[in-house]
Design a binder for these strands. Structure first.
Lengths: 185, 185, 185, 185
DNA sequence: AATGAATGAGCTTTCATTCAT
DNA sequence: AATGAATGAAAGCTCATTCAT
């Protein structure tokens, strides 16, 4: 009867997309329910703590997606710089696909209220994973460990700024500028 | 003759602070009213379109504050790098004063605003002003125009990322790293 | 199986009564909620568009009630005039029961509705039903089709005026005058 | 400097028009102020009791206008029927000019809430004036006093219904039907 | 595992009015 | 006679969540 993925998965995927575009407080549960074609009562069946549980699941889901893109970017790369450059161009393409609006999937989803310590901790954990993965890829492509660490740090910091700037300017150009900013022209 | 009625000013200042910390949707009008000690009906007298109007006014107010800090940072600077470094340290200090939480006063305030289009227009305008002011200061301190432009671009992009990272990590370290990231160690 | 949830029914019945007496803008949702002993959130569960949706439902509910009174009035009538006269007296009695105030249940409810266009569509539909039912009854009691049509037209137009006049004068006399006005003394 | 009528007159005229179209509760004081280009604070200068005072003034203003139209209609009439027919056609024309929407200027303005005894009394008074004027005109054109009284009664009752029906159907036809309904074809 | 009606606190906004000048 | 800023009660509505089935 249904080729759709299970309800839980649909909820997570829809939530990830919506939170990334409109922020945690900018999306209502009703909107997520409608977008995922999930029945009204099922959210609290799968996520007993409701919206915040769902946001955490959505953030971790999006984090994995991002890691997959990172891995793919380094697959055929000769150098760390190559891998990072490919990664940024893939993100730029995604940004354009998402109507030139969606930002960092994690900070958009989990980061609107200072009082939520759990959100902050999850964000740190995810950013740490991203950092480690990037560093490992750089080392695998021949970078010195110390250098690889600085590179990963510069990448993710600059990328955060680029996501913001791309949203403001309505173009993916800032995201594409990231490699130049961190490696020099 | 040019001094606005205090109520309006109080509303704008309170809104700027709150939006910067909690985001547009994270702050209710009741909270702003309470913080500014303004009666409920006054908001709509001064800002007929309500919360979104107030957010715009708050963003422009915060933008001017930021410009003042920039100007002060360059006052006693010998070089462009000096001025930018001082500016980042002043922002880092402010960040710490604000409970290690508040981010870019503009994107925090306007990012989740109902209308993306209006947000973009106003934010671009403000960022453009910041860019031009920075560039002018750099040139005044002896930088080549072309170089000054690149410097301003790198500053504001990296700073956006640093604001986000500082919020995530709960420390002003990322903001302090900005000069190193854009000028090299 | 076909009995709607009581909450929805209570809302509609209470709204019909209140709108008929005080008009669309003269009744607040809080008043309807209180009269129907329904919790605040239920209204928007059953009527997603809120007050205006409820007013439409209330108008259609009241229209059916009115049709039932019309049918009952013609049940034991020998002639069309008899049926119409009985109908007017029944309405006059209801008017008195309702504190000499309530007017046409449809125009009272929908006249000030936000959208003139939607009001017109729904009111025309209801008035058409009333007209057809009246005409059919008249024919069933032996009236010529052409004559029955004119009779129905005269009845409903005059009755509208009588409802207004009765409200102004605070007495059901104008409603009782209707048969005389349309048939002659 | 200004060819505009005095502020008070502009307020009354604007209010009369707006109330006639949207009802007492359907019009806010802000809307009236804007339509009459009156300064914000002047309403309570001219009408110490505010909106309700203004509505009474607007109703009496509209009542005089209507009387003027009635007088004009009888000026060149040979019979009472002629005068009434002309009057109805003039009103039908006005109805069309007012976007096929505005109803009886008095009941629209003063008649939305049962609790307002003052409004009800003023409406009765105005309707009485209309009735007397009509009766006097009919007698002047040769009608028997008793007949003239019945005629006036039928006119105003049917006209109230016709105003409602015209609004519902979006055409002035019901108003034009009035003479036929009260005099026969 | 799944459902949709029910819930009431809280939201932004509109309202007619009052005040100081 | 005239002004516009100030006012807070009340408006309609949205929200994330809970409940009975």
């Amino acid at each position: 009867m249904s080729n759709l993925p299970p309800t839980r998965d649909r909820l997570v995927a829809a939530a990830a997309l919506l939170f990334q575009r409109k922020g945690y407080h900018g999306v209502g549960v009703a909107e997520i329910l409608e977008a995922s074609e999930a029945p009204k009562g099922s959210l609290y069946h799968h996520f007993p703590n409701g919206k915040s549980d769902l946001a955490l699941a959505a953030a971790h889901f999006a984090a994995q997606e991002t890691l997959r893109i990172l891995d793919a970017s380094f697959e055929d790369a000769n150098t760390a710089r190559d891998g990072i450059t490919t990664f940024c161009y893939k993100l730029a393409k995604l940004f354009t696909l998402h109507d030139n609006w969606s930002g960092c999937p994690i900070s958009s989803t989990l980061f609107e209220s200072p009082s939520n310590q759990e959100f902050r901790l999850n964000t740190r954990e995810i950013f740490q994973e991203w950092h480690e993965a990037t560093k490992a890829h750089a080392i695998a492509k021949g970078a010195e460990p110390e250098n690889a660490d600085a590179m990963a740090n510069a990448l993710w910091m600059t990328l955060q700024g680029a996501w913001t700037m791309s949203r403001v300017r309505g173009t993916s150009d800032p995201i594409k500028q990231v490699p130049m900013l961190i490696f020099g022209s």
